[in-house]
């Protein structure tokens, strides 16, 4: 499988990364280079093989339902490029 420039533009859009028109060709080439190379996995017979879900086989640990009441409003907003009155502020979103 390989990508064309339209696909590169589409995945860049999905990934929310602006790509200039003059970058498309190089990106197309790079991605196709990698895709061609990973194509060799097609040789491997994975019939009946379960996909790996975790590198280490342990049961998932769980937390008790205890709320830690701690107001971190300042801590979670202090790094924000746009914050006002304890809110994060972003360009208007139209629903």
């Amino acid at each position: 499988m390989s990508v064309d420039q339209k696909t590169v533009r589409h995945i860049a859009r999905l990934a929310r990364i602006a790509v200039r028109d003059d970058e498309l060709e190089a990106l197309e080439k790079e991605l196709n280079g990698i895709l061609d190379w990973v194509e060799q996995l097609g040789e491997v017979d994975v019939e009946g093989v379960e996909p790996m879900t975790s590198a280490v086989e342990v049961a998932m640990k769980m937390r008790d339902d205890v709320a830690v009441v701690q107001d971190l409003q300042k801590e979670v907003t202090r790094n924000a490029p746009g914050a006002e009155d304890g809110f994060y502020v972003v360009p208007k979103v139209v629903e």
């Binding site: 995945i11 991605l31 996995l41 491997v44 093989v49 379960e50 996909p51 790996m52």
Partner: peptide, 28 residues
């Protein structure tokens, strides 16, 4: 490059061919 590559291999229609396959090879 890697974000785009990762976005592509997870995108609709390609997940099984790439990601799922890779996770199976990983098991092997």
């Amino acid at each position: 490059r890697r974000v785009l590559m990762g976005t592509y291999v997870l995108s609709a229609g390609y997940y099984d061919a790439y990601y799922l396959k890779a996770q199976k090879v990983r098991t092997l």
